[in-house]
Amino acid sequence: MAKNIAVIGDSESIKGFAAIGMDIYPCDDNENAPHLFRKIADGDNYAVIFITEEMFGLVEKERKRYEERLIPAVIPIPGVKGNTGIGIKRLSSFVEKAVGSDIIFND
């Protein structure tokens, strides 16, 4: 079975991803975000889930269930409201774990 890419976020931030073949899941109701995330992550269709940084924070409890799994990879992306820095912080943390020091932002 082919593994696809899903994108979750407010409709304005994610609508362009449909044009390049990704499955989009607009969520403009913050209270529905955890349920929508679980539904997508628990399915067997997606290897990667891009989620706007705003939504990423709203589904923290649900995300923790998937952190130790290889699939789906959950990757925060900036939304139209701007970059909160969550994605960069996570990348830096992963690199530091793998290499033993922060080689990305080590000034």
Rank of each mutant, 00 (worst) to 15 (best):
M1S: 13
K3D: 09
N4R: 15
I5E: 06
I5Q: 06
A6Y: 07
A6I: 03
V7G: 00
V7W: 01
V7S: 06
V7F: 01
I8E: 00
G9S: 07
G9N: 02
S11C: 04
G16A: 10
G16D: 11
F17G: 02
A18V: 10
I20T: 14
I20F: 14
G21V: 05
G21Q: 05
M22S: 04
M22H: 06
D23R: 13
Y25W: 05
D28N: 15
D29E: 14
N30D: 14
N30Q: 03
E31R: 07
N32D: 12
N32R: 12
A33Y: 03
A33G: 05
A33S: 14
A33L: 10
P34M: 02
P34H: 04
H35Q: 14
L36D: 01
F37V: 08
F37R: 04
K39A: 10
A41Q: 06
G43L: 07
N45L: 15
N45P: 00
A47E: 11
I49V: 15
I49A: 02
I51C: 08
I51E: 09
E54A: 11
M55F: 12
F56G: 01
G57L: 10
G57M: 06
L58E: 10
K61Q: 12
E62T: 07
R63Y: 12
R63E: 10
R65V: 02
Y66C: 07
E67Y: 12
R69P: 00
R69A: 14
L70W: 12
I71A: 06
P72V: 07
P72Q: 06
P72I: 08
P72A: 11
V74H: 01
I75V: 15
P76H: 08
I77S: 05
I77W: 08
P78K: 12
V80S: 14
K81G: 10
N83P: 03
T84Y: 08
T84D: 11
G85F: 02
I86S: 03
K89G: 02
S93C: 00
F94V: 15
F94C: 13
V95Q: 00
A98W: 10
V99H: 00
S101K: 15
I103H: 01
I103Q: 01
F105G: 05
F105D: 05
N106W: 00
N106M: 08
D107F: 15
